[in-house]
Amino acid sequence: MITTNNITKKYGDFTAINDLSFNVNEGEILCLLGANGAGKSTIINILLNFTLPTLGTAEINNLDVIKNPIKTKEFLTYIPENLMLYPTLSAVENLDYFTKLSNKTFDQQQLQNYLSKAGLEKAAHNNRVNTFSKGMRQKVGIALAIAKESKVLLLDEPTSGLDPKSSNEFISLLKKMKDDGVAILMATHDLFRAKEVSTHIGIMRSGILENYSSTSELTLKQLETIYLDIMNFKNVS
């Protein structure tokens, strides 16, 4: 569903991503771990066609993202670290707008159902989102993914800054989406959440995918060790 083939991205002499290849299939969650500047967000930007790779190809649903920039976006929903919506519109209106931009039209009831499925309280559905917390805005993003029946979810640090309750709720939603067959790529710093939610974990450093493992093969302790090892924090651990 999500495929990168030998992606390299250079900014002048600086190599942001070096020969990166991975696959995320239906019902899988790949969490990319790594420090700031490791290249996690860059790969998401390449998959969104916001950034062009220097070398290699990226595919969403077997379509090249560069050759099919509009078509590939029909299959995906992107939730950035700080999902921003239109502040003077309500949650329902925001969802209505974004779904219409994806050529899907729903009535008010359907939109409210999607918001409820994403865990947004009914009382908030018609409130303007300028009163919403980050967690509530992300639920609107998830509602969009559900409404669009997205096959792919791209998440960039989605739990950063969320309180534990919101974070738990969000992770539960991701698990549900995974079970529904959505392929999810999540860039994160959060080892604990990555271990909890992912099917696969990739650890990146300086644009290189240093480690790629099936989550079930690792304990949290092992994961932490590998991570710190890669990040050159062996002595500290």
Partner: peptide, 14 residues
């Protein structure tokens, strides 16, 4: 400024 452009572009809006 509101960072909604990213959301729009991710929806494939030209």
């Amino acid at each position: 400024e509101n960072k909604t452009l990213t959301m729009l572009k991710s929806q494939g809006v030209s």
